[in-house]
Amino acid sequence: MVVELSAVKSVSPWQTHSVRIVSVKAEIPGVMTYRLKFVDQAVGNSFTVEPGQFNMLYLPGYGESAISVSGYDPENNELLHTVRAAGNVTRALSRLVVGDELGLRGPFGQGWPMETARDGHLVLIAGGLGFAPICSAIETAVQQSSRYRRISILAGARSPDQLLYGQQYNLWKAAGAELRLTVDRATSQWSGNVGVVPLLVNRIEISDPATTTVMMCGPEMMMWYTAKAATERNIPAENIWLSMERNMNCAIGHCGHCQFGPAFICKDGPVLRYDKIASYLKIKGL
């Protein structure tokens, strides 16, 4: 967990940049996806982000909230953030409209290992709002689908109306990805699976576990059982990656809030390798 000195940044990590809301899309009740563009084009031009990283969105007077990047358009310097209005900051954000400005610090953290997974079978697994960070991996993967032998997307939610990104499913399938959905509680129109996300892992074909990479994000309990299901299908623990969440305040590993055992989720994570954290996952109150 010791970082390289060469990564030292000269700009103050506390510098916030202005971003403008370009569009707002209602995803599911209480959850919006914001398209954000840097007000200062020079800042936008120098900005790069990896799938799985996060930004601190800042509403002056309310504070910051760590929100994962669910999409990035480098040509227009536009970022996508899917946010549930849950706390002070995100509720204040939900009151903003197109054209309003807010602050952003970032990007922070370690993202998905898209390069490491190359040439293999990529299994992307999302539970609930955990779909947001997985979405950035899906978008990156389907845009470069020839880089992967196969792409499987497994996603679950409590009920069909809680499933995110429904409008993108056909695009992902058109790019050759396999998509399997599950819900805890079905409705009469639902034709997909019913049951918890880990069960989906047993439904897909895994021809070569050694070259299969699993990336997942969702509630910790879901990830625990999903990782277990994946290892039972002989996928090595070091090929399984989890995006973890803890309360992030500074995002730079200086405030201590987001510690999870030896990891600072903000800088060592949020994406962490299963074998490195497995022993800590089931310890209550860690």
Binding site: W14, V39, Y58
Partner: peptide, 18 residues
């Protein structure tokens, strides 16, 4: 004090204390 935000009309100016 690590940073300030100052409203300027509809916009915000952000400054980090260096």
């Amino acid at each position: 004090l690590v940073a300030t935000a100052t409203r300027d009309g509809q916009r915000w100016e952000f400054e980090a204390i260096e």
